[in-house]
Simulated assay, not measured.
Amino acid sequence: MLDVRESRELQAAILALRQMDRVTARAIFKATRGAIVPEWREALAAAATTNFEMRVLAAGGARADVKNDGVTLKAAQSTRKLSGGASPRDIGHAAEFGGKWHRGQVDVPAQNGRRGFTYERMLNKQLKPRRSKGWVAWPLAARLAPRFAALWVQTLVWVTYEAFEGKTP
């Protein structure tokens, strides 16, 4: 999303983190994650337009990873099954990027001595149409990336200052 080669400030932040001791770096990661994750979850919940998107993308394990080289925003990371039997991790891609609607054959198996039958219906109708740039999480991540990068650098400076002052990180 953001190119570090274009920003000398981000390059300096990454180099500072690589040289920093583990305790201070861990405190920076923890403080940054604590600030970003709730905001990311709220933004995903607000951006989701359907109940399906809300359950899969926002409530289905919205997370953020903070490491030496930046912040990674994630959606639909939960492996806990939804009421239909699928987990958000399995169907997250379809919820974000949509799916192809097509007519298909549905086979109903034989039950209780009755003969089975086949009928035709539209499949994947619950999904939005395909879109390579995403519907919810990708546009939202593109909009929030500069803010989260600035928050990451501010937290790095603040925790480093606290460590130099002798306060525990």
Rank of each mutant, 00 (worst) to 15 (best):
P88K: 10
G116A: 10
E96A: 09
G113A: 13
L156R: 11
Q126G: 12
D65R: 15
S83Y: 02
E6F: 12
A75S: 14
G166Q: 13
G70K: 05
M122T: 15
G85R: 05
S78P: 10
A31S: 11
L151E: 03
L140P: 01
H93L: 15
W101T: 10
K30D: 06
L151Y: 02
V4T: 07
Y119D: 00
K100M: 12
R130N: 06
K128A: 15
I36A: 00
F148Q: 00
F117V: 06
Q111E: 12
N124P: 04
T49F: 07
V66E: 06
T32W: 00
H102N: 10
R115Q: 14
A141P: 01
L73E: 01
D65I: 02
A110Y: 05
G70T: 04
A95E: 03
L17W: 10
D90N: 14
G60T: 00
G34D: 01
L2F: 05
W40D: 00
L123P: 03
V66R: 00
L2G: 06
R114P: 04
T79S: 12
T24P: 03
A58P: 08
G34I: 01
S78N: 06
F164V: 11
D69L: 09
V66C: 07
M122S: 08
R18G: 13
P129E: 07
R55I: 05
M54S: 12
K74C: 04
A27I: 01
G61M: 07
Q105F: 15
I28D: 03
P109C: 01
G60H: 08
W135H: 05
R5T: 07
G166S: 11
D107P: 10
L57Y: 02
V108I: 14
F29W: 09
E120V: 12
T50E: 05
R143K: 08
L127M: 06
R41E: 01
G99A: 13
P129W: 06
Q19D: 12
G98F: 01
M20F: 04
L15Y: 09
